[in-house]
Amino acid sequence: MSGQLVTSTVPAGAVVQWGFLTITAANLIVILTMIVVFVLAILLPFPADRDEDRP
């Protein structure tokens, strides 16, 4: 057999590559979004409760 026959109707997704690291753009976006959300969750102030602290 020689030559690849590709008949898929769905176009392949975009891929990002650094050396041997390969990741699809969709997966990369998901992971980067998670990191951004994590950093925001840590840095953004949490709304303070007006209720007084109780021991």
Binding site: V10, P11, G13, T22, I23, A25
Partner: peptide, 13 residues
């Protein structure tokens, strides 16, 4: 191609 992580088309897997 690290294909275990991947999905067909432009979707996260």
């Amino acid at each position: 191609q690290w294909g275990i992580m991947n999905e067909t088309g432009n979707y996260p897997g």
